[in-house]
Design a protein around this nucleic acid. Structure first.
Lengths: 219, 219
DNA sequence: CATTACTTTTAGATTAGTCTAAAAATATTT
DNA sequence: AAATATTTTTAGACTAATCTAAAAGTAATG
């Protein structure tokens, strides 16, 4: 069994090895976990001893199979709990993360299997992020950021970045939810902003920042 | 906010101050938590410093208002999660405790309020134990142990002791569940065993130990 | 390519929670 | 009430996770 802390380190390493493709640096992990580089170094040695990461001093780290498996299973738990909180307990987008951060560390295979069944084997969490299955496989979903969406094509809103709670509150206020029809009406190159149609009626102006953090899929 | 460990100590103290009525001894706590008396003494000093218990060396402890409040709220969480696990996730009696021990330490008022509503404000957990409300009030329920039940009176099974998992498994096997009609047919004084009727048809023999751990209420 | 800047690691300390062994206090028994 | 037994506390040590400050490595720049 692994500690909360170990699971959080593995999750952080997984997250950043997706983005930058390879080794994850000590500082990156420290920043992600709001801790200090020295603390990270200590923990890396421990995780390496346990065979969860590949670690060479000054070289950054990658996950081993075992490490990846724990990271992904923690992400699976996190996202299933988010679905539960939103769908069953009426949590808002911006309220789920903090609680799911705690729930993801509950250890019980039975619990998570039964929860999955209870929720109807959801494929995505409330922000549109894919939920890996029991074997650690992520469902491939072809969503793109609004920044790269084509003018005039019909999309549906399929995902939102859950990095920033204020962004989620902003979406809440504008009543932007997953599943709504979406179309880019006009794009302004000088500042990256655009006019978009959301739902059947509403057209509005969104900034480049919003476009980067909102994801859509072809209908 | 309080740690898992602190919450568990407070829960243990609450539990035993119910039974024996007054001060709880260091050894009692040590036994309840599978730890050593020396560790308990350390923690008692800490809890006393935080104003959660009344503690005088060598005199045993009682909970302060603040301490009781945390203990009861932890028990409330534990029992609500047990209802969730049994009713929604199809856990068996003997499977809930271990997972609820973890879930009870999740900190979120919103979570527990919404869970309560989702479950329909249950009054008792799956073992029949009362669930305190938000203000820490326990619903009074007049259940008695089968040991003290009268021959010939009509009861319903209303609670079971959840101390021993093997006992719960035994009840499972005999298909004894809460809500079943119950009557004592005959009592044998020499060993405390009795013949009882459970449900409409079935009559069976139960030992003194079973009688002590099974609770019934008048219909 | 030497100097500066940044990143990472080491060294040594700290806090929470636990332990064993021994000392002190309380309870029990003769 | 003296001797023995039990309970509780103290003293000192350990582990996990963290920190600050300083040293060591790596990268960037003039």
């Amino acid at each position: 069994m692994f500690s909360f802390t170990e699971e959080n380190y593995l999750k952080a390493i997984f997250k950043h090895s997706q983005k930058e493709g390879g080794e994850v640096s000590t500082n990156t992990i420290a920043e992600e976990l709001n801790t200090k580089a020295a603390s990270v170094t200590d923990m890396l040695r421990k995780l390496a001893d346990k065979g969860l990461i590949n670690y060479e001093k000054y070289k950054g780290v990658t996950l081993t199979k075992a490490g990846r498996s724990i990271a992904v299973s923690t992400i699976r738990k996190h996202r299933l709990w988010e679905v539960f909180l939103c769908e069953k307990l009426k949590f808002r987008w911006d309220e789920v993360h903090e609680v799911a951060e705690q729930l993801e560390h509950i250890h019980s295979d039975l619990l998570i299997d039964q929860l999955d069944e209870f929720l109807g084997y959801p494929k995505n969490d409330p922000h549109g992020d894919p939920i890996p299955d029991k074997n650690g496989e992520f469902p491939k979903d072809a969503q793109i950021s609004v920044e790269n969406a084509k003018v005039g094509t019909n999309y549906t809103i399929s995902g939102v970045s859950d990095e920033d709670n204020n962004f989620l509150k902003y979406l809440n206020k504008l009543e932007i939810t997953l599943g709504l029809p979406f179309e880019v009406l006009e794009r302004f190159e000088f500042d990256g902003s655009m006019t978009v149609k959301i739902g059947e009626e509403r057209s509005l102006q969104i900034s480049k920042e919003v476009a980067q953090n909102l994801f859509v899929a072809k209908v």
